[in-house]
Amino acid sequence: MTPLLQVSGLTRMYGNRVGCRDVSFELWPGEVMGIVGESGSGKSTLLSCLSARLEPTSGTVAYDTREDGLTDIYALSEPRRRLLMRTDWGIVHQNPRDGLRMGVSAGANVGERLMAVGARHYGAIRAEAGEWLRKVEIDAERIDDLPLTFSGGMLQRLQIARNLVTHPRLVFMDEPTGGLDVSVQARLLDLLRRLVIDLGLAAVVVTHDLAVTRLLAHRLMVMRRGEVVETGLTDQVLDDPHHPYTQLLVSSVLQP
């Protein structure tokens, strides 16, 4: 078996400033990894580098492509990288407006990835889009509505449907529950958790919310000032943190 993602010595500098430094890990099929750390710890930079959106200064990100096995994603031609991003990968942005077309209907938002990979049967595209709206608990009657009329939680679920419709193997999520009400968060988390299990998705989830990682992530990577300070099984890192920073992070969480 090969890992889905193999990251070694990944470094991204912004001039003299460190974005992230010397990050190495492997992600296996079906595995969900959480990246936690405070703002500015480099977790978003790392996520951008991993998801082919920001070229690293040094180090490699290899992905297990269906054709050639482990391949450096930054060595792929742009068409192949784009194809990868819209078939095998999903990217869930914190702000769903960054990941959706706000001017076209919910159905078209979900169907776009299908059309992008060659689907040309309207009825089939629409049926598939409707099925995905159902899976993310959006009323099928809203299929022709513009996302502008959706609530924040619905928008995020729509974004998730748009990403999952091509059955990706790896999904990158940047603060997927950020900016949502607590009750909406809980619903979204439960949905994500179920989808991840049902579809056997691998995922990298960036968040500053430790509760999110406990529910979603199998393992955790704690970042501080661009470097990984602790890794391990999620419950082990949260219940028995070793690094001073992780202990501070865990002890800083307010218990309701």
Binding site: P79, A108, E112, M115, V117, R120, R126
Partner: peptide, 11 residues
């Protein structure tokens, strides 16, 4: 990369 063009027709 023209898949998105069909979005208009879909709409």
């Amino acid at each position: 990369d023209y898949g998105a063009m069909h979005v208009k027709l879909y709409e």
